[in-house]
């Protein structure tokens, strides 16, 4: 019994070590980083964070990321809710095929869609707008949301719907005031996964934006490829991208497996 907790503790320490190292870097100046290897930094400085919060070319990256992630989450939830309800409750022509087709888009290689997306959004003059990235992320997030929500909705017995209709509820009133409160934890989980997968994505976000909607991920990769790196600044930017996920994860901890398994576990 004791031995297994030692293994677990060792694993957790190993998991945390790279993250801790980045935190360590983010609290030191570049000269200090290059000069010596220190496991516990002594003269801690917050200059890197101050620079990110005061320099528009850095903090606008976070704002841009948050804008398209939120847009994406809203689009996904609003359109996926009725769709998930339909997949769970009705059988209609081609339902299984559409359901499978959605899954294929969750799994599609982003690299395949890169060039066509660029052309498509150029045609609509949407390059370098937040909505372009939000729509592009719908390619994998919308199927994911539909699948997760369908999993949760199928856990609600159909008798509830039937009883409500017998009691004289019209469909919209039933859907918004009875059904949505019933699956609110499912909606929360779906929103979390939308947010997360949109937040971590790099390829589309980088390709579809140039300046005005440039996300933090693109700003960071550009900094990496430039010569004369400021490691401390880069580390601080990385730490700040972890913060949103780390804040929310506590609330969805018991649903993580279900979400990753597309609502099937």
């Amino acid at each position: 019994m004791k031995k297994r907790y030692i293994i677990l503790a060792a694993y957790l320490v190993l998991i945390m070590l790279p993250i801790y190292w980045m935190l360590n870097m983010s609290l030191r100046t570049n000269a200090d980083i290059m000069a010596q290897l220190v496991f516990i930094p002594t003269d801690i400085t917050f200059a890197n964070y101050t620079k990110i919060f005061t320099d528009a070319s850095w903090y606008s990256g976070y704002i841009n990321s948050i804008i398209y992630v939120v847009l994406n989450t809203i689009i996904c939830l609003v359109t996926a809710l009725p769709a998930a309800y339909a997949f769970s409750r009705y059988s209609f022509i081609g339902d299984k095929h559409v359901f499978f087709w959605l899954l294929t888009n969750r799994m599609a290689p982003a690299a395949v869609f890169l060039l066509p997306f660029f052309q498509l959004y150029s045609t609509f003059n949407l390059i370098d707008t937040h909505i372009a990235v939000a729509l592009a992320h719908c390619l994998f997030n919308l199927p994911l949301t539909v699948w997760i929500l369908e999993g949760f909705i199928s856990g609600v017995p159909r008798e509830i719907d039937e009883t409500a209709f017998i009691d004289g509820y019209k469909f919209p009133r039933f859907f918004f005031f009875v059904f949505i409160p019933l699956i609110r934890s499912g909606i929360g989980v779906a929103a979390f996964f939308c947010f997360m997968f949109s937040w971590v994505e790099l390829l589309f976000a980088r390709t579809l934006t140039t300046t005005a909607a440039k996300p933090i991920a693109a700003i960071m990769t550009r900094t990496v490829s430039a010569s004369g790196l400021d490691w401390g600044l880069l580390a601080a930017a990385g730490i700040l991208t972890i913060v949103p996920g780390a804040l929310v994860i506590w609330f969805v901890r018991n649903y993580l497996a279900k979400g990753f398994a597309l609502g099937r576990v």
């Binding site: 790279p18 991920a217 994860i249 993580l256």
Partner: peptide, 27 residues
């Protein structure tokens, strides 16, 4: 659960950055 799941929530490019910083021979 929270500690184990943490790496999953880090943006993919930052994962790369973390490991550059972690494995570079100088820093």
């Amino acid at each position: 659960l929270v500690l184990v799941a943490l790496p999953l929530l880090i943006p993919w490019n930052v994962i790369g950055t973390i490991w550059i910083i972690f494995t570079r021979p100088d820093i």
